[in-house]
Structures are given as C-alpha cells and as structure tokens.
Design a protein around this nucleic acid. Structure first.
Lengths: 221, 221
DNA sequence: CCAATAATTTAGATTTGTCTAAATTTTGAT
DNA sequence: ATCAAAATTTAGACAAATCTAAATTATTGG
C-alpha cells in the first residue's frame, strides 16, 4: 500500500502528463523524470504489478482510479509543504518547490492532516495551484491563461502553468504575484504580446509566451 | 559531502553509542540499527572510505572530528523537527520521534536554519534533549538521573534517557512531564524505589529502573 | 596455553532503481 | 504499401544496502 520515493515520482509525473485522457508515453516520462526510456519501461512494469495503472507495451500508460488517488495524495502533501515553506518559513516562492519535492515523500496521514489544520486548510499553494483535500479531492477552479482572457476585463492572477525558476524569476521582476489584479489594455496581433495594467502601476508589456503561462480568473466571480 | 539516509542512520547510531570515548562494536551497531552484523561491516568500510571515522577491523569504530560534526547536524535537524511537531502541530511527545527520523534526512541548511528561527531558536527538544546550534555545538546541560539525586531537594524534570514508547507511555500515566517540579521524599534501599512528590500531587512511587531513566536538574540553578 | 565460544568479517546472493547497447515494434513519408 | 526513422522494450550490467552461510579472528575458562 505504500510507495517508494522513486515510485511516487513516477506516479506524480504520469498524473501531470495525463491532463486530457490521452495515454502517457515512455519518452514523455523519460523527459519529465530525467531518466532513460529503458528505466521508465522497467518501472512501469513494476507499477503495473502493483495494480495502479494500465500499461500496454508500446502504447503508453494511464493511472487507474487507485493510481489517481495515490497521485492526488502525493500532490496534497507537496502543496501543503509548499504553503508551509512560503507562508511560515518565508521562503521565496521560487525556492519552495525543490524542498517540497523531498518533504512530499513522507507519507503519514496524521502528519499531513495536522499540517493542513495548522495552516488553516489552505485551498491554493504559493503557485496558485489547488490543494487536494483529505480525501484527495481537488477544489474546482475556473482558471484561464492570461493569453486567452478578454480585453478590458479585470482579473486576478491565480496561478502559473509551470514552476521553472526562469518563469518565477521573470514574474518576480515584473512584480506579478498570485492575487494581484490585472487587466489587458491592448493585444498586438503581430506577435501576440499584451499591454497590461497591474494594480495601479504603469502599463507594462508581456510576451505572448509569458501570457500563456499565467493563469487568471475573473475578478467578480 | 552528502550522506544517504542509511549512512546518516549509522553516523547517528555511532554517535549515540560513543558516549564515553570507547570504541563502538559491530554488534552494538547491529543491535541499535536492527541490521545484521555483516551489513554493519559493509557500511563501516564505506564510511571509512569517506574519511569520517576510524575503523579498525575486529576492534570497532569511532567518529573522527568530521564525523562528529556530521552527527551533530543530523541530530540538530531531528530535534528541531521534534520541537516543531510537538509545539506547532500538537503531536504527543511519544509520537514525534518516528516522524523526525524521516524529516531529519532532508539536508538543507537553509531549511534547517529557517525552521530554527521560526521556532524561536529552542534550546531543548520535547524530550528534554539539547538542540545543537547552527555550528553543531551542543548547549551544555548539567543533568543527573533522578535515581542519583539528593533527598528532599526540589528538582526540575529535564529529560529522559531513552525515548521508547513504553517509557513515554509510563511517564504520561504518572503525569511526569518535562519542566515539572519533583522532589524525592523517601528512598527504599531494598529495591531502590523512590517515593516522590510531583508539583503538589499526592505522593507516588517510582521503580529504581524508571528513576534511572528520568533526568533532572536542581531547581535553583 | 589452548580449545571452545563469541564476535566479526568475507563471500556470494537479492532487491531497487538506474544505465548502455542491442533488438523489436510502431509511425510516417513517399 | 513499404521502408527508414523514431519510439519502445529487452538483455545484461552496476551501485547501494541489505541478507545468509561460511570463514576468520578474538576472548576466555579451565
């Protein structure tokens, strides 16, 4: 019933790549986990024996219900620790991820749930991602990429699509934080870049690629 | 410069068995770590190659200066996490040890030192053991076993000699906690048992063996 | 001081998780 | 539809950390 740290990393990676209901490929996992494809194949066979996923050789893999539940509980631990590190220990939001990668593997429901209570049952982590509850249920969030958001409609920054240190560094430089109010003033068709207003600061420009990685939700909702 | 979790457990075990400056034997380590003597020999050879201990085959082992420093930093992490679990997450003191055994292996000076600051630089953990500082220095404490303490001298309970769940369960039942005021009223020579007064509760009796495992310090000091 | 016992080490095997190199299967372009 | 390229799996090896069984070394009692 318990998984090793390596197994948990595979479970998490499969879950993340499984967004739509497509099969996850060996190469995609190899890329995500920085291991060789042959190693992925080995591990998939072992996880299949543990009955947490459907693996068809040459055709990829999908977590079954049990595997998804396991993934959500790992992600719950990860995001609760991220919240703790940022909120209580005052780590920068771009420093919490690697530490949470280690803390998440301590699998003690008692610890996780007490931490959750201590933190006040937070709903989103420092990157704006929802935190699954004790049953592994994810709060539903209606979020859309800033790149696809309407003109002249106030919105709230609610997350980012990846947490590379490069992205987080850029956001810090532009003073874009979770919870900030934002509005698109102009969209340039030529390169998809946006002119935006953040709080009441002067207008700034964001590249199309950056705007695709920033998630927002409508202000009034 | 980094050690695996298994290596850290050996380092910690050697440190604990090394109280006086005697050599630590293979069998003692095997007993403490619940592994076979052959496994201990293997690991000692590996740790010797890392230059953190003096290992003479058939004659036991001692940590060198570098090994002791490593041990103290592991113990620092362990005790800070114990303090966090008891103080912030409200775990019973007999539940914190196994969780701290896992948390201690996350070796991030930044994490450890921020945790230390967040907790207010505590000097002793929930079991009354001193917490090494950022340099690995242990606060000096003058503590003596209750069994060896003077009659009719008020003292403060300041620690326990081992943290088996059995001992902690017994202490909880007798309402003996770290910081409580205690005084020996009678000592029976026949079996070494003690009659003691705790705070202003009715007199109770402690076995000699129990009293050997409770550490106290003089009240006025 | 020497034999029996206790402690320790060596030798060889196992599990987990990884790798490289080779073989196999699928895919895609013509 | 076929064949080259890409993706994937298989085979065999390795390191870490453990084990069992056998060999070796130290200790101790008579």
């Amino acid at each position: 019933m318990g998984f090793s740290a390596a197994e948990e990393n595979y479970i998490k990676a499969i879950w993340k790549l499984q967004k739509d209901n497509t099969n996850v490929t060996t190469n995609a996992l190899s890329e995500a986990l920085k291991t060789k494809p042959a190693s992925v194949t080995d591990m998939l066979k072992r996880l299949k024996d543990k009955n947490i996923l459907n693996y068809l050789p040459y055709y990829g893999v999908q977590l079954n219900a049990e595997g998804q539940q396991a993934a959500l509980l790992i992600i719950r631990r990860h995001r609760l620790w991220e919240y703790f590190l940022a909120e209580k220990l005052k780590f920068d939001w771009d420093a919490v991820h690697p530490l949470a990668e280690e803390l998440e593997h301590i699998n003690s429901p008692e610890l996780t749930n007490r931490l959750d209570a201590y933190l006040g049952y937070p709903q989103i982590d420092p990157h704006g991602d929802p935190i699954p509850n004790i049953k592994g249920q994810m709060p539903v969030t209606t979020r859309i990429a800033l790149a696809d958001y309407a003109l002249n409609q106030p919105a709230v920054v609610s997350g980012v699509l990846n947490q590379s240190s490069e992205l987080l560094e850029l956001l810090k430089h532009k003073k874009i934080t979770i919870g900030a109010t934002i509005e698109i003033c102009r969209r340039f068709e030529f390169d998809g870049s946006l002119e935006i207003q953040l709080q009441d600061l002067p207008l700034i420009t964001l590249s199309s690629y950056l705007a695709q990685n920033i998630l927002v939700k409508p202000l009034q909702l």
